[in-house]
């Protein structure tokens, strides 16, 4: 443990970098997954195909995907963020579609019948009511991405993966732990934070 304590400043910086990678990837992933999820919820027939495709992407070993993406994005943060955003698609799209499908019909019927435009129906009624399940998906995706982001150590993207990667290379267990323990704690903290958010959203939207 002495390594971790003597390098706490470095570990702090790497933790922030790690969070940066995950947040950037999540933001990009959401921007893609939201329209895809809406599409999957609206067109059930296409949704099986889409989810199958995303599931196949999800099944590619992350290291292999990273190797491929480095050819296009070069070294650094970009290929890692691309890998993370790709992996998040399956989880996010599936959850967003399920969340939208679970919104009670009566409230949608009322929203339309009362004179909301399709856009107003979506932003004012459908999305808020779907938020608990969506946040659940975001939680799963975040935890998964925190783990996968450790790959950043291989391609110079920074983050806690650095310590894990160098520790493994030098067969220096303490350094490896100094990367993996904060990563695990980060995942646990993110899980707890999203759970709390999920609870609030659920309480607010219960019928």
């Amino acid at each position: 443990m002495s390594y971790l304590f003597s390098h706490w400043r470095l570990i702090g910086v790497l933790t922030l970098q790690h969070l940066g990678l995950v947040s950037a990837a999540l933001a990009i992933a959401l921007a893609i997954a939201l329209p895809l999820g809406i599409f999957a919820a609206r067109v059930p027939r296409a949704s099986a195909l889409l989810l199958g495709l995303l599931g196949a992407l999800y099944a590619i070993p992350s290291l292999a995907l990273l190797a491929v993406l480095v050819r296009y994005f070069g070294l650094g943060a970009a290929p890692v963020i691309a890998v993370l955003a790709t992996y998040a698609q399956f989880i996010l799209v599936r959850n967003i579609a399920a969340a939208l499908r679970a919104v009670p019909r009566a409230q949608l019927d009322a929203a339309r019948g009362i004179g909301m435009s399709s856009r107003q129906q979506f932003w004012r009624v459908e999305l808020p009511l779907a938020s608990p399940i969506m946040i659940g998906g975001l939680r799963l995706a975040t935890v998964a991405l925190i783990a996968i982001a450790a790959l950043g150590g291989y391609v110079g993207a920074g983050g806690l993966g650095n310590e894990i990667f160098f520790g493994l290379q030098r067969r220096y267990l303490e350094q490896t732990l100094a990367g993996s323990i904060p990563a695990a704690l980060l995942a646990i903290a993110a899980d707890a934070a999203f759970r709390a958010l999920e609870r609030v959203a659920t309480r607010r939207t219960a019928g």
Partner: peptide, 11 residues
């Protein structure tokens, strides 16, 4: 417009 299921917005 009033429906049987009421459809009040829960949030």
């Amino acid at each position: 417009y009033v429906i049987q299921a009421v459809g009040l917005f829960a949030h």
